[in-house]
Nucleic acid binder design. Structure first.
Length: 621
DNA sequence: CCTAGACTGAAAGTTACTTA
DNA sequence: TAAGTAACTTTCAGTCTAGG
């Protein structure tokens, strides 16, 4: 007797047999032999059989007793199934020189199921096959005399078996392949199919979340179990773009083929939203805010959306010619940089030199810090740090004769790092002090590749005003916050969003409009202000973005309306208790899964919770 | 401290080719 | 001719590190 008792075959498709029976079986048995052992060397072989790509039945080959059992959940007899199987067995036994006995000695037994065990719907046959296999495996005794088998389960309990299967898949995963070298060892956890693959949780959520639009606008769902994080987030950013017609004009007039600065600031309202400001420079030398957008995150795609709205808005209002700023000044932020390059491919992005040097400084202090060793401590002297700072500052600030000269200066910095590293290596041996090496790596990966973004040398020939930094926008934010604090209405971090909008609309924008008009004309500011207000009133706020219009009341009780475009309204749901999903699946009770949203807190079913349930549902019904 | 993006290695998917 | 195979590409999750 073989030491192997079981062989579970991959399924067999009967309709294919006539043409390809020989090669198919050979491939099949060969694959089995390579993986573990020949299938006919087992005691029992379980072969799920598929008929007409529709129905499944279970067959068990008892190799030793030479019996083929066929169990069909409808109690129908498929004579040819047994014959074909027998044909296979004989062929394969011959080919692999395994004695399977005479063909006539084999018996084909169609098990007859009691009525309570028969399938009563059109979709459970697969579960029946699994259930039969499991029961037979568990008992490991299949004898031709014992028939019909007693009632092991009823057809009603198949739904529970389905849930059990879900439970087991969630818990154990699916073994993807068998390690040919160690066939008896279970696969490593890495090879288990994880929940995300079993349940395609990343696919769109279903109708309730669908909106027209690009894929990236669909909310994301991450269900994580086991090795993965147990959290599900339906993530929909909040976006509000604010730009008055007056600002639009400023942006069009003073932003086209000129420099625009962009920066974000936090802690302006009680929400943890960021406020982005775009400012342009007036020929008289002062800077004015030209657009605001408030977002719930700072991801690239969110910024792209806002910039697109602003660009399209100006295009529509001033159709003549293409409007495109020549340069954008931002701080060293990749999300902003990439977004600008996506929306304005022709514009050059420049990084604020102040932020660049700030980053340098931070990394010089952290990476080139003094280190305490076992016996000695190595000191990177302030002088050395000063030296490298000076060299980098030169790279940032100065204009060189040509690109080669800049390159030479840059390489000399790297060589300086190498030199210092070598000194340390000589003293302490390789790999013990890698301060300079890691700093060099940082320079190369983080800055060397993107030199055009931050070095003054590569900016020659560009028109971007007089500033090399986003200083004016930072000071604008600073003054803005200072004014807010000074108005004595409490902590700005506790204020509401509508208050912020009101403040922008009635304080900030008119201020700058006054200033601009004073510079452009000789009209007294009071009259200008009136004229500006007229424009604002007429346009309400941002025309063309009328998806949502709301009447709001500010702190002083003045009513004003705001219209804004929200490309998708939503909130973040933090669903906890997902680890209990498997119990929920068995109990059909979802109260253990909790969600942070208002509905969820009241124990009601909210959308993400419903989605989690739906995913389960799909598996057990 | 938090979020975003680059990077990385592994798995899954694709395709062209081989084999019986 | 269909299944297997190898080489290649794409996708995805996890890690790391950046800057605010």
């Amino acid at each position: 007797m073989s030491k192997h008792n079981l062989y579970a075959a991959r399924y067999a498709r009967l309709e294919r047999l006539p043409a390809s029976v020989i090669s198919a079986v050979e491939m099949w048995s060969r694959a089995g032999r390579r993986a573990t052992h020949a299938w006919l060397e087992s005691k029992y072989v379980f072969i799920p059989i598929n008929i007409g790509n529709a129905h499944w039945m279970c067959s068990v080959v008892d190799v030793q007793s030479q019996v083929i059992y066929i169990i069909d959940s409808y109690n129908e007899e498929y004579r040819h199934v047994g014959d074909k199987l027998l044909e296979w067995i004989c062929k394969d036994g011959e080919a692999n020189e395994i004695s399977v006995g005479r063909k006539s000695a084999w018996k084909i037994v169609h098990k007859v199921l009691p009525k309570q065990m028969m399938q009563k719907n059109g979709s459970d046959c697969g579960m029946f096959v699994l259930a039969f296999s499991r029961e037979l495996c568990m008992r490991m005794s299949i004898s031709p005399g014992a028939e019909p088998p007693g009632i092991v389960f009823t057809s009603e309990s198949v739904a529970d078996k389905r849930r059990r299967a879900v439970h087991e898949i969630l818990k154990m995963g699916i073994q993807g392949r068998i390690d040919t070298k160690r066939p008896n060892v279970a696969c490593s956890p890495n090879e288990k199919t994880t929940l995300q693959q079993v349940v395609d949780a990343k696919s769109p959520l279903g109708k309730q979340f669908y909106r027209d639009g690009a894929t990236e606008k669909l909310p994301r769902v991450r269900i994580k179990q086991g090795r993965m994080v147990k959290q599900m987030v339906v993530y929909q950013p909040f976006i509000l773009v604010l730009m008055s017609p007056a600002q639009e004009r400023l942006l069009w007039k003073y932003g086209n083929q000129r420099c625009i600065q962009m920066d974000s600031t936090f802690n302006i309202t009680r929400s943890k939203f960021s406020t982005f400001t775009l400012i342009a420079r007036h020929p008289d030398g002062f800077y004015m805010p030209c657009a605001f957008f408030i977002t719930s995150d700072e991801r690239q795609e969110t910024i792209v959306y806002c910039l697109q709205v602003i660009r399209d808005r100006i295009k529509r209002k001033y159709p003549g010619g293409t409007w495109c700023p020549s340069t954008f000044m931002v701080d060293c932020c990749w999300a902003e940089t990439n977004a600008i390059e996506q929306v304005f491919p022709k514009a050059r992005v420049l990084w604020c030199q102040f932020h660049v040097f700030q980053a340098f400084n931070r990394n010089i202090t952290s990476k080139l810090a003094e280190k305490q060793g076992v016996q000695v401590s190595i000191a990177i002297s302030p002088k050395e740090r000063g030296q490298i700072k000076k060299m980098l500052w030169k790279l940032v600030k100065e204009t060189f004769k040509d690109d080669d000269a800049w390159d030479k200066a840059y390489t000399s910095v790297l060589e300086f790092c190498d030199h210092k590293q070598k000194e340390i290596d000589k003293q302490f041996g390789d790999a013990s002090w890698t301060t300079w090496r890691s700093f060099r790596k940082y320079l190369e990966t983080q800055w060397g590749r993107h030199r055009k973004l931050w070095a003054r040398h590569f900016r020659s020939g560009l028109t971007y005003g007089t500033q090399e930094t986003t200083g004016s926008i930072e000071s604008f934010h600073g003054r803005w916050k200072a004014r807010l604090i000074a108005d004595g209405k409490g902590d700005i971090r506790c204020r509401r969003m509508d208050w912020l909008i009101h403040h922008l609309q009635h304080e900030i924008i008119p201020r700058y409009c006054d200033k601009v008009c004073q510079a452009e004309t000789s009209i007294a500011p009071a009259r200008v202000r009136k004229a500006m207000f007229h424009v604002l009133d007429e346009a309400k706020t941002i025309d063309g973005m009328k998806d949502v219009e709301k009447e709001t009341t500010d702190d002083e009780g003045t009513r004003f309306s705001v219209s804004y475009r929200v490309n998708y309204s939503g909130e973040v749901h933090n669903v906890s208790g997902l680890e209990t999903l498997e119990d929920c699946a068995l109990d059909r009770d979802h109260t253990q899964v909790k969600c942070s949203c208002a509905l969820g807190r009241n124990g009601q079913v909210c959308a993400p919770k419903m989605k989690a349930m739906l995913i389960e549902n799909e598996l057990w019904t």
